[in-house]
């Protein structure tokens, strides 16, 4: 009888620990399934100081929070970059380093490095770990497609025969990329829950 009880207890313990181990492994994996590995291809871009940047290889070893913008966007894109700026500041306060923030322009013909730099400066952005990128259209749109981001330019209309007005219809997303260059999560850029993003970043730190 005692032997049976001993065996029964062992089975219960085995089931409990098996369940716990499965939860720890598969539960975490489910939280951050690898969406796509973008480390295979490399593209040359320019940052806001006109310096060459290899994307994404230059960011390997860093957690990357990345979005796509155009600087003539007055409403949605600034909301996204502002949300990223808030997260950047919160992480800095907590002493969390190793996180790189990036915004790539999908309007490269207008968003030159100079324009990007002015965009950052007027918003008092800390460019120590926040980078703005542009480049030739082919490279930029190759990256955009890697992220399944969509940006469609509308027709340019001329107001008063002299003001070219154009807007993009675009996806409202920002992405979390791990240190190995794998997209791990995506968020609505203009309305991201900063606490959730920070929590996810911390989970990838380990």
């Amino acid at each position: 009888m005692n032997h049976l009880k001993f065996v029964s207890n062992k089975i219960i313990l085995f089931v409990f620990f098996s369940g716990l181990i499965s939860f720890l492994f598969f539960g975490c994996a489910k939280k951050f399934p690898e969406q796509k590995d973008i480390s295979g291809n490399n593209y040359v871009l320019l940052n806001q100081d006109s310096a060459k940047v290899n994307f994404p290889s230059d960011f390997k070893g860093k957690i990357l929070v990345i979005t796509f913008i155009y600087t003539n966007c007055p409403d949605i894109c600034p909301m996204t970059t502002h949300n990223m700026q808030m997260v950047q500041q919160k992480l800095a306060k907590e002493g969390i380093t190793g996180v790189q923030f990036a915004a790539i322009s999908f309007d490269p013909s207008r968003d030159t490095p100079k324009v990007l730099k002015e965009y950052a400066e007027v918003r008092d952005m800390d460019l120590k770990n926040f980078i703005f990128l542009t480049g030739n259209k082919k490279n930029v749109y190759s990256i955009i497609h890697e992220f399944n981001f969509i940006a469609i330019p509308g027709d340019t209309t001329f107001v008063d025969k002299k003001y070219p007005v154009y807007f993009y219809t675009h996806t409202d997303k920002l992405f979390l990329v791990d240190k190995q260059g794998r997209i791990r999560n995506e968020y609505r850029g203009s309305k991201v829950n900063s606490q959730k993003l920070i929590s996810d970043i911390k989970s990838l730190e380990d």
């Binding site: 966007c73 007055p74 409403d75 949605i76 969509i150 469609i152 807007f167 219809t169 675009h170 996806t171 409202d172 203009s190």
Partner: peptide
């Protein structure tokens, strides 16, 4: 006067 809108997951104005 402008309106931002979302349609099929895309933001427009």
């Amino acid at each position: 006067l402008h309106e931002s809108y979302i349609q099929k997951g895309m933001m427009g104005m």
